[in-house]
């Protein structure tokens, strides 16, 4: 009997080459857009590539970067976490309230609180099989409410004398650039360390690979014997802790615990993750791409500010929402078409 050799069977793979190119474009698309945006800014605006601007953009966006990192893992399992804004607000209030007692409690306690909210999310989602959307909507409301109660419905000032404030002021080291020095601030350092660890976890640990497996085909992951529930609980817990860390940075940057801040942060984070190229349906994604997504969305805002500074046109800050929204829609449509072609 003449049977087919597997090499012949491989011929069928060629047809999917286009998918691979498209996937590459999709993943690198955000990076290409980021490079173009930076070039545009550098040519058009004075001081865009200056040390001051770079420092500020990176410091401010470190908060979104942390949340988007956690959100990347959540989305890679096929889930979603809407509670991050509330958790960040709660953490900022806790940090401000605890700031008189020194750096350590003002950082550790809020992060633990965020971890707890995340654990609650994860347990409810994984063990009780409640959809993530509903679960985290509920904890968003609860965390926000708790922040308002603790803050007595007002902003809470950070004790500037007790060391906590140095988080925002401190610079680990500086690189002299035109228009001021580029400072590697503590928030930026935290962000970089978090992304390095996140990337390592995703690519070189079982946990990271299993996160992708759960999002790619949960039933298969279960049949392969992976601890699906534990993996899900872990990603929500991590995301809660990272959102709280963002809240701590918020308090340090503004010298205030802000119970009403963080509105829409979950959406910004989701947008950054998706724009970076992580599939909203789970199973495929990259940590580095999320960082690109965060910077891309952050630069849109930055460029809007510069544009207004030129005084030719005056675009309200709300335009950034419109631009981000349209951008996100385009990316999701592209993703959907790619996914459709794979079927």
């Amino acid at each position: 009997m003449a049977t087919t050799s597997p090499t012949e069977l491989r011929a069928g793979q060629q047809a999917t080459g286009r998918v691979r190119i498209a996937a590459l474009l999709q993943r690198q698309g955000a990076l290409i857009a980021l490079v173009l945006l930076v070039l545009f800014g550098a040519l058009r605006y004075e001081g865009f590539l200056g040390g001051y601007n770079i420092t500020e953009v990176l410091r401010y966006n470190s908060m979104f970067g942390l949340i988007a990192l956690g959100m990347t893992f959540v989305i890679m399992t096929g889930g979603i976490d809407l509670s991050v804004g509330g958790v960040a607000a709660l953490a900022s209030v806790l940090a401000a309230l605890l700031s008189p007692y020194g750096m350590l409690p003002a950082v550790v306690v809020p992060v633990l609180a965020g971890l707890l909210v995340g654990l609650l999310n994860g347990v409810v989602i994984a063990r009780l099989a409640i959809p993530p959307f509903i679960t985290t909507l509920a904890t968003l409301l609860a965390a926000r409410g708790m922040a308002l109660i603790l803050a007595n419905n007002a902003s809470v000032s950070v004790d500037s004398g007790a060391g906590f404030a140095s988080i925002s002021l401190g610079s680990v080291f500086s690189i002299p650039l035109p228009d001021g020095a580029f400072n590697v601030t503590i928030p930026l350092l935290v962000l970089l360390v978090a992304y390095a660890l996140g990337s390592l976890a995703l690519n070189y640990t079982r946990f990271g690979r299993h996160v992708l497996a759960v999002g790619g085909n949960e039933e298969a992951a279960r049949l392969m014997g992976l601890p699906v529930a534990r993996i899900k609980i872990s990603v929500y817990a991590i995301n809660g802790a990272l959102a709280a860390l963002a809240g701590v940075i918020l308090a340090a940057l503004t010298f205030t615990g802000l119970p009403t801040e963080g509105l829409g942060w979950e959406l910004s984070a989701i947008a950054a993750v998706v724009v970076g190229g992580t599939l909203l349906t789970g199973g495929m994604g990259s940590v580095g791409a999320t960082l690109v997504g965060v910077l891309l969305l952050g630069l849109i805002f930055n460029i809007l500010n510069f544009e207004n500074g030129r005084g030719v046109v005056s675009l309200s800050a709300y335009w950034q929402s419109v631009i981000r929204g349209v951008f996100l829609l385009v990316v999701i449509i592209l993703q959907n078409r790619l996914a459709g072609r794979r079927q």
Partner: peptide
């Protein structure tokens, strides 16, 4: 019942990855 986005090798060793 495998995970489509993951590599062939990962699908074979998922859960028992050599470390």
């Amino acid at each position: 019942n495998l995970v489509p986005f993951r590599s062939v090798a990962e699908n074979i060793f998922m859960g028992r990855e050599p470390r």
